[in-house]
Nucleic acid binder design. Structure first.
Lengths: 197, 197
DNA sequence: AGCAGTGGTTTACAAAAGTTAATTTCCGGC
DNA sequence: GCCGGAAATTAACTTTTGTAAACCACTGCT
């Protein structure tokens, strides 16, 4: 039995008292996906409504700006959910690319199938609410950082909260997530070193 | 019968075929709230898990930065949902203030009560999913704007998409939503006028 | 060992944003 | 209509960021 299934069963039990033994209708329609570093999971234009739980590794979602540069929207890592949001929310082809930054193991489900399962087994609904609230919470925290903090403060924040993740990811993606250029991030790092940490 | 209830009943029917007549367990626990311009709906520190549908008017959510300035996180207007997200997502006292920018009419429900209703009547779940997906969608769109667009582009975007709203709201709140100062927004407006619109 | 490619830093310059304060415009209440 | 306060603009100056290009450092490959 996969690690992901165990932790999600555990979560489901905590959320609504559903026993692992009663969770088979749900996990019967999930499947494990392995990606190697740098492999693309979802391509621009893809229509699949993929939702996945990250067992191992880091994923990156990005899109192309008008000028052709990549803009990283977010990173997701172990124990987080990642979802093709254009397809799930709007039923439109994805404008984003989702790609593995490291070797990644996912537990994947198709959102259409999830909806079918939910219709028949409403006892799983708390799990859907959980992941929606989680993603909403993360998005709001990022929004909040953009309106309350300067780029340097956002970077300090990220270091304080996710040092491990920052260290596993090339700076240029961190910069783009922070809404600045790699050159600018480099200068921020320099200023932080000079001015007594 | 309130306008909001009608439109939400309509929405519920579209989402899952629930007839208005069958929606009373839900709407029995909602109540209409009227705020006058500038009145505070949720205060910093409030613990109520308020969720509301905006029938009329514009609401603003803001928090205080370290330096004491207000930072506007978002605006919400007619036909949108507004939720005390700290209390609903994390069960923590709200770090944000929610305030009416104009005279506002809301249809309010307590999230704890909503959960009770959902437990007994799972047929209403699609409505909860709808509002969560809607809020998630809006947050992601804002995040996307921050990583892909310059302040000027974000402002142009906002004008193109929500000209009516921008015109009903003082510029300083718009500026803060865009992550810049009012002085900077003023300069952007000037540049836009000079350079042939 | 040598080489190519990527990512990070540095430099020099232009453009934009922050800050503070003065000034003007706008608006609501009387 | 007048007045007072809030909002917006302007100005002067500082700081930060963007941009483009050169340079450096590291890695993986043959």
């Amino acid at each position: 039995m996969s690690v992901s299934i165990s932790s999600l069963q555990q979560l489901l039990f905590e959320l609504s008292g559903v026993l692992p033994a009663d969770s088979s209708p749900l996990f019967a329609v999930t499947r494990q996906v392995k990606l190697h570093a740098n492999e693309t999971y979802i391509r621009e234009g893809d229509k699949d409504r993929r939702l996945a739980y990250i067992e191992k590794g880091i994923m990156r979602a990005y899109t192309l700006k008008q000028n052709g540069d990549e803009a990283t929207l977010f990173l997701r890592w172990e124990k987080q959910f990642i979802a093709s949001h254009d397809t799930i929310i709007h039923r439109k082809p994805s404008r984003f690319v989702y790609r593995a930054l490291e070797d990644v193991t996912l537990l994947e489900i198709d959102y259409d199938i999830l909806e079918e399962v939910m219709k028949v087994h409403p006892r799983f609904e708390p799990l859907r609410n959980f992941f929606l609230l989680r993603m909403l919470s993360e998005s709001l925290a990022i929004m909040e950082a953009f309106v309350t903090l300067s780029p340097e403060e956002r970077y300090r924040n990220l270091l304080a909260e996710r040092f491990d993740v920052v260290n596993r990811v090339p700076d240029k993606y961190i910069a783009s997530m922070l809404g600045i250029t790699p050159v600018s991030l480099s200068r921020i790092r320099k200023r932080m070193l000079e001015k007594g940490k």
